[in-house]
Design a protein around this nucleic acid. Structure first.
Length: 690
DNA sequence: GTTAGGG
DNA sequence: CCCTAAC
């Protein structure tokens, strides 16, 4: 009876929760679990957590009245008190974490003293929930007992979809990334998911229904990411791979159920928006330093600890920030990234975006290194023979471009501390070891066995087409201590230089397609000359505590997609250009089909609607993109097949394109497009194509 | 914020 | 894809 009461209470409290943004769908999913098959897990969790709390209680002097309240649970007094607690706890964990963990909180937060600790535990728990893959050592934190359970449920939850039954799925981040990677390159991946998309076209309400009742585990992750702010993401950094693994393709390409896109308040920052912000920032640079005061959270960590490792504090900070809800979300707009360019010798605020989308969509990330003025000499003796050992190609790298860094630092932090942070971040990025990837004409050369000659890198003329990428050494990710939160940052480096014996592992060449774990850099210790070269700005020696105020320094891998895009090899083109072009993402046939269908139904001139209808969850596709694609599609359909390039679009689709184009051209889609027309369109199209 | 169209 | 004018 008591139990029932408690449960009821708990459930009702759920509905009262007002978690800002994305978390909703997330919670929905989790709640579903609770109701259906998650009961046991939840209870297990509770038990585990309770046990853990008790253990911790010994040292924290927190009383365990949890036993006592069973008897009074039903009383108004207790109830009210509880609700307060709940509220408090809610604030603590409303980051959109699993409802399970929140449940736990409710059950175990009888003591206010426990709140703090609980919060800590819960945060860890949440983190672990999302990790699944990462080592669970959890650095001996209180979550030790709890995480496994959560992990299990979470894992099973979404596991069913992405990669069922793959043992390695849970074994390592690296594996996860690989899997993602494979999927990313597997056209089938999309094909599998597409049916859903196609189906949705038949029902305008589908999206809505999806939102109302997410059915795929993917959605949970989908929403999860958007939820997190940069700061949050940084906290989740090491789990990024996991996210990717679970949802990247589906989330990105398929129409998973994201409910936020329509919401202005929580619209996944589109690139457009990002650019806008970026532009804004460019003009305002550091003025937009976030005000973190209201975000401050009680720190459970000793000062000296913070001083010792300033970055650790970030975790706490982020945990706290996650509680900020909307304000936090809004505030993220003020978070900026900065990039360090050796050419300038300084750093410049470059962009502010931190779209979850980006994090999800990132294909390539890293640090861009540009090799300017690469010089290549082709020995005269170089013959056509691929085995010529005498021929040499010489490269020289003049500069590297460091990838964007995400820095979240309080206004009152000193410039010196900022410098130090930047330096540490950069060094940390580099210290973890990098792999070099070679790009030719923007395409990655995966076969290490190919010779330069074969690759076309033996002649000067082709040197401009060579690019290099620095890939994180994934091995490090796996061994990262839970607390250190310092996943290696990915560097996309673009140098015109190429080392013949670059240690690129062909098998892992796909790494770039997996998002790198977002990481907070810590303890950059290895600083070699080369690294220092990256920053010409002198860095004042600061006392360790000078960093005390540093909230976070995070390399933001997710932005990588854009930031990492290999810098144009052509030195003359735009080397100093801060804003880099988005990486090209050719539309797949499935996407084209979705687009065509949407146009057939909606007509042209309603690109926003088309976006929401057919690409709502493809964050990397803006309606402008769709419009442009349609434009090219129409053009493609008009030209001869011989003139077409890229992935061939089925003639059937092109026919539909022409038909739809013709129809809507005539019917002024923009004005009165409606359901009335739809039937006609389809009809006309059918007639024309048959 | 969207559209439309040139680049 | 980007950029912008126009709405």
């Amino acid at each position: 009876m008591v139990m029932k009461k408690r449960l009821d209470n708990r459930f009702s409290s759920f509905s009262d929760w007002t978690v800002p943004r994305g978390p909703r769908s997330l919670r929905r999913v989790h709640r579903k679990n609770d109701f259906e098959d998650g009961q046991i897990c939840a209870i297990e969790l509770l038990a585990s957590l309770a046990g853990k709390l008790l253990q911790d209680g010994e040292s924290t002097a927190c009383s365990n009245t949890s036993d006592g309240d069973h008897s009074v649970i039903g009383t108004n007094v207790v109830k009210e008190e509880q609700s307060n607690e709940e509220r408090a706890f809610k604030v603590e964990c409303c980051d959109g974490g699993s409802s399970q963990s929140c449940d736990l909180g409710l059950e175990n937060t009888d003591q206010k003293q426990n709140l703090k600790k609980l919060q800590y535990v819960d945060n860890d728990t949440v983190l672990d929930c999302t990790s699944v893959v990462v080592n669970s050592n959890s650095s001996g934190e209180a979550c030790g007992d709890v995480t496994p359970v959560i992990r299990k449920t979470e894992f099973e939850d979404y596991r069913a979809k992405p990669e069922e039954g793959s043992p390695e799925f849970v074994e390592s981040t690296e594996t996860g990334m690989k899997i993602v990677n494979e999927e990313a390159h597997d056209a089938k991946g999309f094909g599998i998911g597409f049916p859903n998309m196609a189906d949705s076209h038949n029902s305008k309400d589908l999206n809505k229904s999806h939102r109302k009742s997410p059915t795929s585990a993917n959605s949970s992750f989908k929403t999860k990411l958007p939820l997190s702010t940069n700061a949050i993401r940084s906290s989740f950094s090491r789990y990024r791979n996991y996210f990717k693994l679970a949802s990247r393709d589906e989330d990105e390409k398929f129409r998973s159920n994201k409910s936020t896109i329509h919401s202005n308040s929580f619209r996944p920052p589109s690139r457009i928006a990002g650019r806008r912000i970026r532009k804004l920032l460019n003009s305002k640079h550091w003025k937009a330093a976030p005000k973190l005061k209201d975000c401050e959270v009680p720190r459970s960590e000793p000062i000296d600890e913070e001083a010792r490792n300033p970055f650790r504090k970030r975790k706490l900070y982020f945990n706290g920030e996650r509680c900020q809800g909307d304000s936090l979300y809004k505030r993220r707009r003020f978070v900026y990234r900065s990039s360090i360019m050796n050419s300038d010798g300084g750093m410049s605020s470059e962009s502010v975006t931190n779209s979850p989308e980006k994090s999800v969509n990132v294909d390539k990330s890293g640090l861009a290194a540009i090799l300017h003025g690469a010089s290549v000499s082709t020995p005269s003796g170089q013959q056509a023979s691929f085995h010529s050992k005498d021929a040499h190609v010489k490269f020289s790298i003049r500069s590297f471009k460091v990838p964007e860094l995400f820095i979240d630092i309080p206004e009152n932090a000193t410039v010196g501390s900022l410098k130090k942070i930047v330096l540490e971040a950069v060094t940390a990025i580099l210290k973890d070891g990098l792999r070099v990837g070679v790009l030719v004409h923007g395409n990655k050369v995966r076969d290490d066995n190919r010779t330069l000659l074969q690759t076309g890198l033996s002649c000067k003329d082709n040197l401009d087409t060579v690019g290099f990428t620095l890939e994180p050494n994934l091995v490090h990710n796996i061994t990262l201590p839970l607390c250190s939160e310092d996943p290696p940052q990915i560097l996309a480096c673009d140098m015109t230089e190429l080392l013949p014996s670059s240690p690129v592992n062909p098998s892992s060449s796909g790494i770039l397609d997996a998002a790198l774990p977002n990481t907070i850099l810590t303890n950059p210790q290895n600083q070699d000359e080369n690294r220092h070269e990256l920053i010409t700005t002198s860095i004042d020696k600061l006392p360790d505590n000078s960093l005390q105020d540093c909230k976070a320094l995070v390399p933001v891998p997710d932005m990588t997609m854009e930031a990492l895009a290999v810098v144009p090899l052509n030195p003359k083109s735009k080397r100093s250009e801060a804003v880099q072009r988005r990486t090209r993402r050719p539309f797949s046939v499935s996407e084209v089909e979705a687009l065509v269908q949407a146009i057939e139904e909606l007509g042209t001139g309603r690109w926003r609607d088309v976006k929401f209808r057919a690409f709502e969850n493809a964050d990397h596709r803006t309606y402008v993109d769709l419009k442009d694609k349609w434009k090219t599609l129409v053009h493609t359909a008009k030209i001869s097949p011989q003139q077409r390039r890229g992935e061939p679009v089925p003639q059937e689709l092109l026919d539909r394109v022409l038909a739809a184009h013709a129809y809507w051209s005539q019917h002024q889609a923009k004005q009165h497009s409606g359901k009335l027309h739809q039937a006609g369109v389809v009809k006309a199209i059918e007639g024309s194509s048959s």
